[in-house]
């Protein structure tokens, strides 16, 4: 585990998490959550948990983003906070 890479990706993960819950658009929130999931997948790959990283890349970054986008298109993009 390279600690510089680890710290950089951890910072990106925190930035993506804060952006995903504070952006005033639900579609943008869904896409930022996909970016967050992919950064998390990179973090697990550099920790040596390759099986967890595979599953997160397919399920977390793929299927979850599709679920969020589908739910936003079936309801509304508007949000107050």
């Amino acid at each position: 585990m390279i600690w510089q890479l680890d710290l950089a990706i951890l910072t990106l993960v925190v930035v993506c998490a804060i952006a995903a819950i504070s952006v005033k658009d639900l579609l943008g929130s869904a896409i930022l959550f996909g970016a967050y999931s992919f950064m998390m997948c990179l973090l697990w790959a550099i920790m040596g948990a390759v099986d967890v990283a595979f599953t997160e890349a397919s399920v977390g970054a793929g299927v979850s983003t599709v679920f969020f986008v589908a739910a936003v298109f079936r309801s509304t993009r508007r949000t107050k906070d």
Partner: peptide, 8 residues
């Protein structure tokens, strides 16, 4: 306040 934000 938004339900989708809570799920995120």
């Amino acid at each position: 306040n938004n339900l989708v934000k809570k799920i995120v």
